[in-house]
Design a protein around this nucleic acid. Sequence first.
DNA 1: AAGGTTTATATCATAAATGTTATAAGGAGT
DNA 2: ACTCCTTATAACATTTATGATATAAACCTT
Lengths: 94, 94
Amino acid sequence: MSIPFSRALEKWNRDEEFRKAHEALDEEFALARMIIEARLRAGLTQEELAERMGTSQSAIARIEGGHRPSLKTLERIAEATGSRLKISLEPASD
Amino acid sequence: MSIPFSRALEKWNRDEEFRKAHEALDEEFALARMIIEARLRAGLTQEELAERMGTSQSAIARIEGGHRPSLKTLERIAEATGSRLKISLEPASD
DNA sequence: AAGGTTTATATCATAAATGTTATAAGGAGT
DNA sequence: ACTCCTTATAACATTTATGATATAAACCTT
């Protein structure tokens, strides 16, 4: 796989074509995207976020690259980015 | 720790006092509660849910008892209980 | 209280996520 | 081209969640 999502999101507003190609993969990497967006909202680099979380830049890159984080890690990301993590299990619409 | 949440939720409507004592611990075990509720909504026992997920009853009990599941496991629970898993990282209200 | 059903606990091997360090690669600006 | 900043990848040790099995405890009905 290995798709540079962080860079992609940073390009988001500069490159319309890139944006479209990206939305196709949307569902699959929805979580990674949310994490990247939360970080960018907070105006942090991977390195800065890592520091706030007490981990390394490479660990952040790994997660943003698509590797599923644990809930504990997700919570730490939420706190470090000034975000609120919401999880729900609702009756499905099917 | 070791608090019998599943049983607690099953008592929910039969024992008002028990319910109140329970709500105090609410936030801490919110996720476990959601999972138990999803299972009960689907009318499943731990054993039945485990079967649908291809795992064991003890694994379900462990999770419902408070051990943090992985996202992969959460997704499997959602599917097996006919629920929809929603995760979001929103800008905090602080 | 006895038997059947359901849930909780314990133990241990395996799998997955993380922490860590180092290095490569991409992008922006001079 | 060359820096500088940032993100991606790789390898390995450690931690955490899972799978599996067995057993205990709680609940319910008669």
